[in-house]
Amino acid sequence: MRILIVDDSKAMRMIVARTLRQSGFAGVTIEEAGTGAEALRLITASEPDLVLCDWNMPEMNGLELLKTLRSQGSKVKFGFVTSEASAEMKDTALAHGAQFLITKPFTPQAFEQTLKPLL
């Protein structure tokens, strides 16, 4: 199983990866992208089983990445890990084909409860 973590913060990519391991996904292959464009290239080349993506990133933000993927016909499982967790943003994310939105700061339990049913 491959999970792609997309975040412009190296620190946050590291924390998301660590939280994945703590929430029962120790055996998965974790890949990282520091920009939306890099993520798009990786996903287009070979779709992972799940994309965990920050919302607020420079150049191509997470929502733009999701819209681009869906416009290209990608059905990759996609969720946001973001500090911006208003109801409006959650509605927007789901309307554009995201499966979930996890709020920062998060816990391993939040990851487990959200991701286990999907993977």
Binding site: S9, A11, M12, N56, S83
Partner: peptide, 26 residues
């Protein structure tokens, strides 16, 4: 990087509680 993420998390949670706030800067 870590300090940027910490303030980003706090600001994001503040934004979610403030009516009509729609954008968060980097």
């Amino acid at each position: 990087d870590a300090m940027g993420e910490l303030v980003n998390m706090i600001a994001g949670n503040i934004k979610a509680r403030v009516p009509n706030a729609t954008h968060l800067s980097l």
